[in-house]
Design a protein around this nucleic acid. Sequence first.
DNA 1: TGCAAGACTTGACATGAAGGTG
DNA 2: CACCTTCATGTCAAGTCTTGCA
Length: 551
Amino acid sequence: VKNRDGLLNTPTRRVILWEEGKSSDGQKWTTLEHNGPLFPPEYEPLPNNVVFYYSGEAFKLGLASEEIATFYAKMLDHEYTTKEVFQKNFFNDWREEMTEDERKVIKKLSKCNFSELHAYFVNKAEEKKNMTKEEKQALKEDNAKLTEQYGFCFLDGHREKIGNFRVEPPGLFRGRGEHPKMGKLKKRIQPEDITINCSKGSRIPGPPQGHKWRKVQHDNTVTWLASWVENIQGHPKYIMLNPSSKLKGEKDWQKYETARNLKLRVDSIRRQYQSDWSSHEMRNRQRGVALYFIDKLALRAGNEKEDDTADTVGCCSLRVEHITLHKELDGKEWVVEFDFLGKDSIRYYNKVPVEKRVFKNLKLFMENKDPDDDLFDRINTTYLNKNLNESMAGLTAKVFRTFNASTTLQDQLNIMTKEDMTVEEKILAYNRANRAVAILCNHQRAAPKTFEKSMQLLQEKIKKKKEQIELAKRELKEAKNAHRERPSDKSKNLVAKKEKVLKRLQEQLKKLQLQMTDKEENKVIALGTSKLNYLDPRITVACPSISCFSL
DNA sequence: TGCAAGACTTGACATGAAGGTG
DNA sequence: CACCTTCATGTCAAGTCTTGCA
């Protein structure tokens, strides 16, 4: 049902433990021991016959600049290396790492020729792909050894899987969407950059030969084992436990419990924000409308963002330019048209009929404002969450997403599944319910690269199957005729046999058609995120017509 | 009290292994 | 069994929300 965690096995007892644990001073563990993070391999210099050219002339780069050049060379067939911002950022950062002499020569990216470097890596990838079974096996075993050594820790005496035990390797930063920092150099992390967190008296992991850690601390109010500061945004990065760990699993459970609590309170909360639409205070009206969006459309809270990031918004950060009001549209009244880039620069486009009072309020909020002014200028996420918390303990904006996602799943399963469906039909129904959630949460994906091709293949299969059915029908008819003219045991058996063949073929056709529908409807919708983060697994398990097979 | 820093969850996408099919 | 699709897992960016501090 759900990967990356072991929620289904979590006994109720743990909820009680969690509730008890919560009251105590934010302590997350008693003992924590681990082997530290695993560093990426050192840079391997290029062989001498792989040459970088500047202005058409061979130029031997020093080790440091050569490594950075390879980052760029590896990406050459990616679209983003053609972007001006990417090129500019890369070239600036690259030049900064060059020696004085290199900098004197290399002044323009357009005069750099990385093609031999690029070819070298393409070739290497090809070689890797063509390795023998034995070589691949050996590589796999090496990897397993590393995972065995670095991939686990001991937390309160239990051996737990670590989520990301590898330090992120250096490379070129590629943000999502139009990120102003795309192409910047993500520097190599040294042990001297890393803070280790473990319990007092535990065996402290040894830093690599000739190095030391930045710091070793024993803070049991946090769950991370190691951290460093990444150089692009200056944000911390953490080594943490895998979702299958007790720690993460209980947190996940807690999240769904909060969503369940919301179910009990949601009627009164909805009444409250509806009454806010008529408040005398502008701030309350904005709060009421924002909350309505968050509840009805599952919008994200929309925190303020730092500069130097892609221009994306959520509910509270919506600007006037992101919505258009239509008194009437497509035969519906009071329609709001949303068009903005949300998390990960995924476009949110939706035309929603709303209550008249909401519509009138929106008009009011937009009065005398420029397109790039905030729609909700009197509120922010802190204010919204503070309010929500007063309505219900633990309630924040994101709980509505979890609550509405899980509720949608439950409702859809109730509507669409019946006990007597075939397994294929049940899978289609479940996927559809899952899909309804993904659409609600706007979880999109790029259409798979092979989509058109595999669709065509399926199309052909269906065509062939139909032809087979036609043939089988004719053969059945012939057999029947023959049986009528000259009845015998043999002819009777033949009719029965032909009937069976036809029936099987028709079943196969139905299966193929179901498959195609499923595939088509899934083209640009990502189901994974909702399955992983939004759907309470207990709903899937409890659904009587679904739980008989594993998803 | 406000806001920056910190901690933790959510997200799309890449990759590799598993498994189904002709 | 070769091929291809599917699914799980890994990666790391980008959100949310809390905490800490001036």
